[in-house]
């Protein structure tokens, strides 16, 4: 599935300082029944965002109009649990392009990169600074530069670099996905398979 290229993203951010946000919260299982990839954003954080009668929960951050932007800032161990890519789809579909945390669960990180969401892992100290900056000014902007691999709090100029492997970086900057690449390796793969004991 093609996704938007990612280079430099300047945006305000939505803070969610909760640890261990698991993919069952991001998109509860009962919303996984679609056979197409669309509309998942409507159910992003469904049970934290809405009451049983579908009225919005006023104290949940996505229902608070003072916060907005294309960056979601989460607590430690973001995206743990189920391998459902639907969690990443929901985040993308809602309008986020980048998730920042001090620690990501593996599968979530992989899924995000595969669909064009940039997971930015920062130090716990820097994560704290981001939360403080947003607390001081809900419209505080962050700048995420993929080419430079840096994230900056624009109000204070504080900056940290983040890791991403060269291959994934190239893909994200160009909106490429792995399937195209793997197709180009077909001959090698077939030769490999011919020697496999299974």
């Amino acid at each position: 599935m093609a996704y938007d290229k990612f280079t430099i993203l300047k945006s305000s951010a939505v803070p969610m300082p909760i640890e261990n946000v698991d993919t069952d919260q991001i998109i509860p299982a009962r919303f996984l029944k679609a056979t197409e990839r669309k509309g998942f954003g409507d159910n992003l954080f469904r049970d934290w965002r809405f009451n049983g009668d579908d009225t919005p929960k006023q104290d949940f951050v996505l229902n608070n109009a003072i916060y907005s932007g294309k960056i979601l800032v989460g607590g430690r161990n973001f995206g743990s649990g189920s391998s459902r890519e639907h969690a990443a789809w929901a985040i993308y579909d809602y309008g986020f392009r980048c998730v920042v945390s001090s620690f990501f669960a593996d599968i979530f990180k992989n899924n995000s990169l595969n669909i064009g969401i940039l997971p930015v892992q920062v130090s716990p100290e820097f994560l704290d600074k981001i939360f403080k900056a947003i607390e001081a000014d809900p419209k505080a902007e962050l700048e995420v530069s993929l080419p430079a691999q840096t994230i900056t709090i624009l109000a204070t100029g504080e900056k940290e670099s983040f890791d991403i492997n060269g291959y994934k970086k190239h893909n994200m900057q160009n909106g490429f996905d792995d399937i195209d690449y793997l197709q180009s390796l077909k001959t090698e793969i077939q030769a490999f398979a011919a020697n496999s004991p299974y």
């Binding site: 459902r84 990443a88 992989n110 669909i115 792995d178 399937i179 793997l182 197709q183 390796l185 077909k186």
Partner: peptide, 18 residues
Amino acid sequence: FGIGTSEVEMVLSSQCIM
């Protein structure tokens, strides 16, 4: 190990993932 749907598509089409 578990994989996401993009990777399911990779395995179906190429028997490989990255």
